[in-house]
Design a protein around this nucleic acid. Structure first.
Lengths: 155, 155
DNA sequence: CTACTTGCAAAGAGTTTGCTAGGCC
DNA sequence: GGCCTAGCAAACTCTTTGCAAGTAG
């Protein structure tokens, strides 16, 4: 079977997506991802909220925002700025993992990066161990320059 | 909250170790790691079990085995085969992250690897973003040759 | 026997949610 | 006003535990 190309997967597909990003699978997240995926348009937060309430009336607006922001950070969803007041969202990929994360342990800032080194690594591993690689996660942590110099926060 | 407290102020250190490995911090794991670290000898499972029960009488033997195996897999602990019947354990490091994991999504086999590419990547990131890197996690998933080519059972 | 593993219900760790109450343009 | 974020207790997801039974040598 080919790698995931599931155009018409389903919940199952979506929970896999979440899991791969290292996120917990909750009804809310699944629902929001489904809504984003099923729509041909680029929805904005409010539309997503409204659609979500059809199927899950208890969902709260802050959940929508938090989830969208999270999904964006994890690279599952792309944020589009058409105008100043609305942000629109679209599904980012269908399984391809192309970027990785560098984050500051102090201020929590997340920097996404890509690197040919990772691709190279994956290829090397695939050959050396005769693996078919489907996912590759790289998470680098440390302290950014500002946190190192500026603040003296310690707990 | 935590019934264990007797040790030095090293609990903090140990939970960081666990966290870095992506593991949850539980009293049992903390305790076992403390025991392994504090002992000058290379303890075996049974000794660890006995020592653990001094401070945490409810702990079960299976927890000891599972935890040791887990810690080994995550590279926190090294397993030593002195003879055929006993395995001994020692603390692996003190925070340096030197190896990464490739695992099969089907059979669950875990292969540890090291790679200069990762070091290179870390250095590159440090320079490019002016970060002080303290941790670097690489986890690659896929399907091993055996699982791809048919069965997949028989570990 | 000894050394270790597995299955499963229940406890636990850590995350996520829905509130409510704001902030910013 | 419209769009989005913050703080916090409670709800939830998923992992881990302890027990008991089981495997291997």
């Amino acid at each position: 079977m080919s790698p995931l190309k599931g155009a018409n997967g389903s919940e199952r597909d979506i929970s896999r997506l979440l899991r791969r990003a290292g996120l917990r699978v909750t009804p809310q997240r699944t629902l929001l991802l489904e809504i984003i995926r099923e729509s041909e348009e680029h929805l904005d937060a409010d539309e997503i909220y409204r659609l979500a309430r059809n199927r899950h009336p208890r969902i709260s607006l802050s959940t929508v925002y938090r989830t969208l922001s999270l999904l964006k950070d994890m690279g599952l969803v792309r944020e589009l700025d058409f105008d100043q007041d609305h942000r629109h969202y679209e599904l980012c990929d269908s399984g391809e993992y192309k970027h990785y994360h560098l984050y500051c342990l102090d201020c929590g800032k997340i920097i996404e990066f890509e690197s040919p080194l990772v691709t190279e690594l994956a290829e090397q591993l695939a050959q050396e161990h005769d693996f078919e690689i489907t996912d590759c996660r790289v998470t680098v942590a440390g302290y950014c320059s500002r946190c190192r110099s500026g603040s003296g926060s310690e707990s």
